[in-house]
């Protein structure tokens, strides 16, 4: 925090790059899913066109202040998450506001966006939004459990709350990556990751069939665009966080792209194969095997790794 004006400048750069990458990634994923489904799919730049279109639209409805703030909170959550996650290990430019307890902040911001969204969407008064929020918060709470357990496991393992230090600890060879040193924690976290990315089988929150759209039902025009931007930033930030915590982080952009893409593909590979769980089923699911694995991971860390 010595040179905060340039820090902020670097962060803006990071935000832009991650945002663009997130958008591109959604295009890539769309094409990948299209391939499975036997289609050619959209052009890669389609998400950008959609964003531009939504930004260019006006609104004519009013649902109250919280409704407007919803997407802002959501975007703030995304940007906040990214702000405390070092994009590239050992890079000043791509280091962001990394500090001693940044892992906690990142986790906080991940939660914060959802809550803000919930408040805003709830304000719209649409029953689909309300049902979607109930499902979304329920499911989030459920997948946070294994995720938190996994984080606890690695915090215990590396004895730090700083992401940069966790990444540092994994340097020096593939064998040092958390995924190999503490596989149980990573499995629990990756299952939670499936819940976070909202691909099947955990996409009931915004399921098009089981209630159309869910929380964002009433959102349109630039609100929708803001949420799309958040999705891109948030997805990028989340992927970078997972990469940093479990897959040894990245020291250059190429490595970053490859690793984050691979992590994302886990969700896509699973998503294409499965239908979706009902929300009660997914809660039950998260609180069963992944939670047990998470607990086992902590036990394993305590019992095997630390001594």
């Amino acid at each position: 925090m010595q040179n905060w004006p340039s820090q902020i400048g670097y962060f803006m750069l990071n935000l832009t790059i991650v945002g663009l990458y997130g958008m591109l990634l959604s295009g890539i994923v769309a094409r990948t899913l299209a391939k499975v489904q036997g289609r050619i799919g959209i052009p890669l730049y389609q998400p950008f066109l959609d964003l531009a279109k939504n930004l260019g639209k006006r609104t004519a409805v009013s649902h109250g202040v919280m409704f407007y703030l919803g997407p802002v909170f959501r975007l703030a959550g995304g940007i906040g998450t990214l702000a405390f996650v070092p994009v590239l290990y050992g890079s000043e430019i791509f280091g962001n506001f990394s500090m001693a307890g940044d892992l906690l902040l990142a986790m906080y911001f991940m939660f914060f966006g959802q809550l803000g969204m919930a408040l805003g969407a709830g304000e719209s008064g649409h029953p689909f939004s309300a049902i979607g929020i109930a499902r979304g918060l329920g499911q989030m709470t459920a997948y946070e459990v294994p995720f938190a357990l996994a984080i606890i496991a690695i915090v215990v393992q590396y004895d730090t709350l700083s992401i940069t230090e966790i990444v540092a600890a994994q340097q020096g060879g593939i064998g040092n990556w958390t995924v190999f040193t503490n596989p149980l924690a990573v499995i629990a976290a990756m299952i939670a990751f499936l819940g976070m990315t909202a691909y099947p089988p955990f996409d009931v929150v915004m399921a098009p069939n089981e209630i159309p759209i869910g929380p964002p039902t009433e959102y349109h025009s630039s609100y929708l665009a803001m949420m799309t931007m958040n999705q891109a930033v948030f997805a990028g930030a989340k992927l970078i966080l997972f990469m940093a915590l479990f897959f040894g982080g990245a020291t250059n952009l190429v490595e970053l792209v490859i690793k984050t893409w691979a992590i994302y593909m886990v969700a896509v590979v699973v998503g294409a194969a499965f239908p979706r769980f009902r929300v009660d089923q997914s809660i039950r699911f998260f609180l069963r095997y992944p939670t047990l694995i998470g607990i086992a991971a902590i036990a394993y860390t305590q019992a095997v790794l630390l001594p």
Partner: peptide, 17 residues
């Protein structure tokens, strides 16, 4: 068994440009 879906990803797409 469901992961069998990915087998079709390597086939020619059904759609046309």
């Amino acid at each position: 068994s469901p992961f069998y879906v990915w087998q079709r990803a390597f086939e020619k797409p059904y759609t046309q440009k």
